[in-house]
């Protein structure tokens, strides 16, 4: 009897405890969720204000109420009349994509050479590469500009693309990634009689895909935001990129805050797009870059 009792006791106790734990867990996670919501609301408040202001009539911009009395969607179209927005958009996207493409290509080639090939002086050259990563870009600003003058590339799209097309950081990032690919593959390929080019093009590059995508995202986003170099280099308005073009709304000629906000919303959209599609690779890439910075 006592054994039955005690088994009953044993059976009842966990049930009670688990209910307690259940409630506690429920409350904890509930509070966590509410807390996370409040925090993220605080962070996106500026965006909410931006979205609402972008559809306001001009006269309501500075008022206390965030909600427009009439939803003026044609603000988005008006941006295209106020400045050659479509052109800036195309320029920005094209320049950023070109830089991304070239940088990924050259970096992948160099990374392959640094990680898979044996050649005399390789490690010394690599150290040189690494050491340039520590230099602030500002040091190179004036000399690079003088080079552009000499090459006659000022105020040209090529002048914007070329300096961005070669990167020590990209090489470093992809080298790290390629080092993690097992070297037995190389030997197998060699036995098959594949050339180094085939090894790179058919085996290593496809296997480095996550690293390549991560580098591509970094480069694209970085150059889409790029402000300093285009500011210095560009003269003709039809070659302007978005960040430079948006400055119009900061001048005395363009005081329409609602149009500015519409323009900002549209300029941010490609980034949101990139992030939503590629966030997994992005997170992986950030960790890769930090492995040994």
């Amino acid at each position: 009897m006592s054994t039955i009792e005690s088994t009953k006791e044993l059976m009842r106790k966990p049930a009670k405890r688990s209910r307690k734990i259940f409630i506690q867990k429920f409350l904890n996670t509930g509070i966590l969720n509410v807390f996370l919501t409040i925090l993220s609301m605080l962070l996106i408040l500026p965006f909410i204000w931006m979205l609402l202001t972008s559809v306001k009539p001009l006269s309501e911009v500075g008022t206390d109420s965030w909600i427009p009395s009439t939803w003026q969607w044609h603000n988005y179209l008006d941006v295209f009349d106020a400045i050659p927005y479509a052109r800036y958009y195309c320029n920005s996207l094209l320049i950023a994509t070109w830089i991304t493409f070239l940088q990924v290509t050259t970096s992948a080639l160099a990374a392959f050479s640094f990680s898979r090939l044996e050649w005399p002086g390789r490690d010394k050259v690599f150290m040189l590469y690494l050491s340039t990563m520590m230099l602030p870009g500002l040091v190179m600003m004036i000399p690079n500009y003088q080079i552009m003058i000499q090459l006659g590339l000022v105020d040209s799209i090529a002048g914007l693309i070329l300096p961005g097309a070669f990167s020590a950081f990209g090489t470093f990032l992809l080298r790290q990634f390629m080092l993690s690919i097992p070297s037995s593959l190389d030997e197998a390929a060699e036995i098959d009689g594949a050339s180094k080019w085939r090894l790179f093009w058919d085996i290593i590059l496809p296997l480095s895909r996550p690293g390549v995508i991560a580098l591509a995202i970094f480069t694209f986003v970085g150059n889409y935001h790029s402000f300093f170099w285009p500011l210095v280099m560009l003269k003709s308005q039809h070659k302007y990129t978005l960040p430079i073009g948006l400055l119009y709304f900061d001048s005395s000629a363009g005081q329409e805050t609602n149009l500015l906000m519409a323009a900002v919303v549209m300029s941010v959209i490609p980034l949101v797009f990139v992030y939503v599609i590629l966030q997994k690779q992005l997170v992986a890439g950030i960790q890769l870059g930090a492995v040994k910075g």
Binding site: T105, T106, S107, L109, A110, F112, S113, F114, L117, E118, W119, P120, G121, R122, V125, L128, Y129, T132, L135, V139, M140, P143, N144, I147, L162, P163, A165, F166, S167, A168, T171, K196, F200
Partner: peptide, 24 residues
């Protein structure tokens, strides 16, 4: 070996020399 190594690194190193090392 040196040739293959440099052939792969060539495009990048040319750019890095022109736009990073020379400016420095």
């Amino acid at each position: 070996q040196l040739f293959t190594g440099l052939a792969f690194i060539g495009p990048n190193i040319a750019g890095v020399f022109t736009f990073v090392i020379f400016p420095v």
